[in-house]
Write a protein that binds this DNA or RNA. Structure first.
Lengths: 128, 128
DNA sequence: CTTGACCTTCCACTTGCTGGAACCCTTATG
DNA sequence: CATAAGGGTTCCAGCAAGTGGAAGGTCAAG
């Protein structure tokens, strides 16, 4: 497979795949013309990374997960631990966003939204 | 006030304040020794930006808000519009995170978490 | 006089890509 | 055979929004 096929099948842009090679996730062989050639295994690895990224795992998380994925001796406890940590971070982000939501909603409600120059949103933001 | 005082009172790191000067948010005077000198107005502006940033407004949003904040002729409708747009984005982010949460929770539940090498999290991630 | 805290500038680095330029390779068509 | 489209390659620059660190100037206290 050339990079275009892998891009289509993995759902990742070709640019991103090259980037993932740069940072050492994959090492595809090269044809005589210099083109990258991918096998199914690399396709799976890329799909794996894509999924993990979309679940909010960082690149460094992916590195750990990939090491575990490839190591037949891996313990699922390790993976679970990483996932749990990730879940915690997701919860924290949700909490933050909810707080923002509440504050903003209040401000919007208080703001007349007509053309009067008095605006509680700006007022509130400027207070120390 | 020197930058340290402003940093403390606004809650922003000194580095960030210098950065905000770089990108044109503030233009503090300089003493003979080259030190920045801030007045209350700049302190308020910085606090304003800090609040807005923590509410998820981008730097560009802040630029608009600041322009409105400083313009006595501003219409609160404009501000409300920016805030509403922001609220929408916050909602979208929350929805995304909730989806991640659900998926991850399922995976974690299915994963034994003991030392057996079989792990549904990894399995699921690797599927195409 | 020296120490330590504070200030300055500048440059590099971060995360996770993305865009673009300039160029090579392959295949189909006139 | 020329050529044009549509792959592929490299490298360089840049995005947001700062952060870290080096090298050096300044100020107040002991």
């Amino acid at each position: 497979m050339n990079i275009g096929d892998v891009a289509e099948r993995s759902g990742l842009p070709a640019k991103t795949i090259r980037y993932y090679e740069d940072i050492g996730f994959i090492k595809p062989r090269r044809g005589l013309n210099g083109y990258r050639h991918f096998d199914e295994k690399e396709l799976h690895k890329l799909a794996f990374i894509g999924r993990a990224r979309s679940l909010g795992f960082t690149i460094e998380d992916c590195r750990s997960l990939l090491a575990l994925y490839e190591d037949k001796e891996r313990a699922s406890a390790d993976v679970k631990e990483i996932a749990k940590q990730n879940l915690k971070e997701i919860d924290a982000k949700i909490a933050d966003l909810r707080a923002m939501h509440t504050t903003l909603t209040h401000l919007i409600e208080e703001c007349a939204g007509d053309h009067r120059p008095d605006c509680p949103i700006l007022k509130n933001l400027g207070e120390i």
